[in-house]
Design a protein around this nucleic acid. Structure first.
Length: 878
RNA sequence: GCCCGGGUGGCGAAAUGGCAGACGCAACAGACUUAAAAUCUGUUUCCCUAAAGGGAGUGCGGGUUCGACUCCCGCCCCGGGCACCA
């Protein structure tokens, strides 16, 4: 029978709240080591918590509770990334201020998180929408502004007419996928110069304990490439190009300008004017996405102009083509079709000459060869390997004054303004006389106005333009009339620095007290989804470095160790081939199995098999599945099926609600199940049966202490001393669980506890001290049950102040161990021996082993291997 | 196309180069029960065999090693990211 989890969990949650058990003192004992354990804070959506949230949050909670028991001062806070588009859309629809729904949603999230028993210090809770928080977000922006890292410009932006909002390049896909329209439009925008930090953002990745894949994604995003800029002369004009392969200059047979390149107008010859004009118009109409989507087929137009290759004086044609991007490098390239895939395709299509200048290794075609080799057809440079040639030619270019070495980054400046209401207002004023003037720091925060209509104005101005009174201000410089900035900041702003505010959330003189900052930073463990691999983590690192340069923080990087939890998928679904399904329709119906067609890319990919039990649809239960010859079939049928799990989604109907799980099995079961499913970082399917499994385990733990029938203490409990076997089991568990927590291998830690409980069930007498210690190692995982049992075992206070149990190696020593004996790598027999027995003694016993002897018969012993405490291998031949 | 992950029983998974499949789920059998649920005990990678026992086996093909899920080389498949960045 299940233990009374609801009652137990309510009791201890109330206890923790009343006693502020997990409060981190303002002035912690500085002689202890610190540990800052952080979750990526959630956007409090109206949907409430989903099962993905508790995964990461439980992982950090275990870590926080464990570190406290190990004597660390732990900072483990939670808050809300509460600006966001859904609340704004709700406001537009209802005319209500988004504040209301936002704080309502926060209350729901807070209630749900408290229900899961996380050991957050709730006194440090922050929300990015709080006025006091906005104040410091704006303050940081002012520092950026004063450092010249924020500038204003007419920028082509991604405008979504149905969202009435500007999206960052990175966000376009997400919203398109949700069915919104996105088009390009030029608008006045605020931009942050993240490019100025590109090199540091790249270099400092090396020292971080992050998943290699995430670091690699950031490196690719920053996209550093080293090469040279080269000037090509063209009667009166100069076209500058960027290339990473200056060693292929002799192979440049034409040039390409981006359609937007300003020189296009100047150089186009009258005969080509019409064609060029038409091509540019067509290119302008395409979005970035369309340009790349249609990338398979190269397009372009000859301008009629020619330029001179500086290395050999040859005259080469100048084309325009949209495969050259105006936003990268100089917006112009020299084309070396022999050694660049794109140029090669283009040259083939338009019949342009292809000249080899790199000799590839033997047996490789030089056409389209893009890797390093040896120079040919390159005049005096012939015979040079690529790397050396690059250095020489760069020096040559610099000497002649026609080029120079150059580093380029793919990273673009960060488009920082949105035409929305529900975001931080920019602390900026527009003064007719003085231009853009920052709001004085003592006047922060600039609060949002009260409106009832949150739509953009009919002439396309942001919603803040509707606040006619709010707009009016006085210029702090000249005292003349000024107008407030009507753009707001993107959602990223608040999440760029929240980890700093937790350290000192109530400070009204600084965003964080420098002394406290120095103590707690950097974040020791940061856990969240991989979807923030690039954007949030890059933006936060950028702001942190700016703050570091301002002297506001003491570390160059904010997050020392990063872990991404893997996504939790829906329950496993079984699929069958549609034709086979149809052929077995009758027999399936008999078994209560029905099929749902699944379409992928317009084709029928498969049929999902479902049963209809208890009135609602469910997956195929395991008792209807059977394996034959390594394949999976529906039981007693000739229908082959395959299992697959998919993302949880409303449309698929496979969403699991944490509230339901807590109600039925309890928070401890949910926590424990999510940690037991598999490695934290891995993608894994949900299984309701798995939840029941861990729930049964917790019930068994409960029954070790409490008699199920009476509710009294179990009669097996004793005040006596534990036996040797009991101590060995316990200490093996302590060692395994502690080590696994350090490595965040929670699934195997839980399995170690299960092994202990399986053994403990067989014991007739259970010393209280033994179970008390076990409860301590269980407590980071299932804190409510642990507190309850700790209390029932006779400890009046919460276990949260207890130390993590020490492993006593003495108890783990075995008198005798079993050793497998292999002959030629196959286990043939087993011997029992003292663990510290000498090699000779081991071999003697092994050779005498009755199961081993027949396998050695008639053979000569070539080699004997003994791996202490592991195994014996006897190598025989003949 | 490029860059990361990953591929082990019916399912989730475990294994410093040293007994592959711990632990859990499901399934099967048994105990308890009037019965069911719950609980407890046992079996459960596949193939051959009545059994004792034997053989095969960690996506595929090679290699290194006394010994490979683990290391090396070459492929295949799945998931994610990037994608005309010169």
């Amino acid at each position: 029978m299940a233990y009374p989890h609801s009652e137990i969990e309510a009791r201890w949650q109330q206890y923790w709240e009343q006693h502020k058990t997990f409060r981190t003192p303002e002035e912690p004992d500085r002689s202890r080591p610190k540990c800052y354990i952080l979750d990526m804070f959630p956007y409090p959506s109206g949907q409430g918590l989903h099962v993905g949230h508790p995964e990461g949050y439980t992982a950090t909670d275990i870590q926080a509770r464990y570190r406290r028991m190990k004597g660390f001062n732990v900072l483990h806070p939670m808050g809300w990334d509460s600006f966001g588009l859904p609340a704004e859309q709700y406001a537009i629809k209802t005319g209500e201020h988004p504040r209301g729904i936002t704080y309502q949603n926060i209350d729901t999230f807070r209630r749900q998180l408290k229900m899961l028993g996380f050991s957050y210090d709730w006194d440090r809770e922050v929300a990015t929408t709080d006025d006091e928080y906005v104040r410091w977000t704006q303050w940081i922006f002012l520092q950026l502004f004063k450092k010249g890292l924020a500038y204003e410009g007419e920028m082509p932006v991604n405008w979504s007419p149905d969202l009435c909002a500007v999206l960052a390049n990175e966000e376009v896909e997400e919203w398109r996928a949700k069915g919104h329209k996105v088009e390009r439009r030029a608008m006045r925008q605020w931009v942050l110069k993240i490019t100025e930090y590109a090199e540091r953002l790249l270099a400092d990745l090396d020292g971080l304990d992050w998943p290699e894949s995430i670091k690699e994604m950031q490196r690719n995003w920053i996209g550093k490439s080293e090469g040279a800029e080269v000037d090509f002369a063209m009667d009166g004009e100069t076209i500058r190009v960027f290339t990473t392969r200056p060693d292929t200059l002799f192979g440049a047979t034409y040039m390409v300008l981006a359609p937007e390149h300003p020189l296009v107008d100047k150089v186009t010859t009258p005969g080509q004017r019409e064609a060029v004009k038409a091509y540019r118009a067509a290119a302008a109409a395409k979005s970035d996405l369309e340009r790349t989507e249609l990338a398979k087929e190269k397009t372009g137009v000859f301008t009629g102009a020619h330029a001179v290759n500086p290395v050999n004086g040859e005259s080469i044609p100048v084309w325009i083509a949209d495969y050259v991007l105006w936003g990268y490098g100089t917006g112009a390239i020299m084309a070396v079709p022999a050694h660049d895939t794109r140029d090669y395709e283009f040259a083939q299509k338009f019949g342009l000459p292809i000249v080899q200048v790199v000799r590839p290794p033997e047996g490789t075609d030089w056409r389209g060869y893009v890797d390093d080799g040896v120079a040919v057809n390159s005049g005096e440079f012939d015979g040079l390997p690529t790397a050396e040639f690059k250095k020489k030619i760069t020096a040559w270019l610099e000497e002649k004054g026609v080029g120079e070495g150059k580093v380029n980054y793919k990273l673009r400046d960060w488009l920082f303004s949105r035409q929305r209401f529900w975001g931080e207002p920019f602390p900026l004023l527009h003064c007719e006389k003085c231009g853009v003037v920052p709001v004085p720091e003592e006047d922060l925060p600039v609060r949002l106005p009260e409106l009832t209509d949150f739509r953009p104005t009919p002439d396309g101005q942001p919603p803040l333009a509707r606040a006619t009174e709010w707009l009016k201000a006085t210029c702090p410089v000249c005292g003349g009339p000024a107008f407030r900035e009507t753009n707001t900041m993107p959602q990223w702003a608040g999440s760029c620095w929240y980890y700093l505010r937790y350290i000192d959330p109530k400070n009204d003189r600084a965003l964080v007290d420098p002394d406290k900052e120095k103590y707690w930073m950097p974040v020791d463990l940061y856990v969240g989804g991989a979807e923030h691999a690039v954007l949030h983590l890059l933006y936060a690192r950028f702001w942190h470095k700016v703050l570091f340069d301002c002297g506001a923080v003491s570390t160059p990087e904010p997050f020392r160790k990063l872990v991404n939890q893997g996504m939790i998928l829906g329950e496993m679904e079984y699929h069958a081939d549609p034709a086979a399904f149809a052929a077995h329709a009758a027999a399936l119906k008999e078994r209560g199995i029905e099929g749902i067609e699944e379409r992928k890319d317009g084709d029928v990919a498969s049929i999902i098999l479902r049963t209809r039990r208890d009135g609602h649809g469910a997956g195929l239960p395991d008792d209807l599945i059977e394996k034959r010859q390594g394949k999976v079939f529906v039981k007693d049928m000739d229908l082959e099926i395959t299992g697959r799990a998919e993302k949880m989604s409303k449309s698929r109907g496979n969403v699991i609600n944490p509230d339901d799980i807590v109600k039925e099995y309890g928070a401890d079961s949910l926590r424990l199940y999510e940690m037991f499913m598999g490695p934290l970082t891995q993608v894994k399917p949900w299984s309701m049966k798995g939840v029941e499994g861990v729930s049964r385990f917790l019930s068994r733990v409960y029954r070790l202490v409490v008699d199920d029938e009476t509710g009294d203490l179990s009669p097996k409990l004793s005040g006596g001393e534990p036996t040797k076997d009991q101590l060995r089991s316990l200490h093996a568990a302590i060692r395994k669980v502690g080590g696994d927590i350090e490595r965040m291998d929670y699934n195997t830690a839980i399995s170690a506890m299960m092994i202990f409980v399986n053994e403990a069930q067989a014991w007739d007498a259970l010393p209280r001290s033994l179970l008390s210690t076990f409860v301590l190692i269980l407590s980071p995982f299932a804190p409510h049950l642990a507190e309850e049992l700790w209390n029932r075992l006779g400890h009046p206070d919460s276990l949260s102040g207890e130390a993590w149990p020490e492993v006593n190696e003495e108890y783990l020593k075995e008198d005798e161990i079993e050793l497998p004996v292999q002959v030629n790598g196959r286990v043939r027999g087993r011997i029992r021996i003292a663990p510290d027995a000498g090699e000779e003694a081991v071999f003697e016993l092994a050779l005498a082993c009755p199961e081993v002897i027949p396998h050695l018969e008639g053979k000569s012993l070539k080699k004997r291997i003994y791996i202490p405490k592991r195994m014996v291998n006897l190598v025989a031949a003949g």
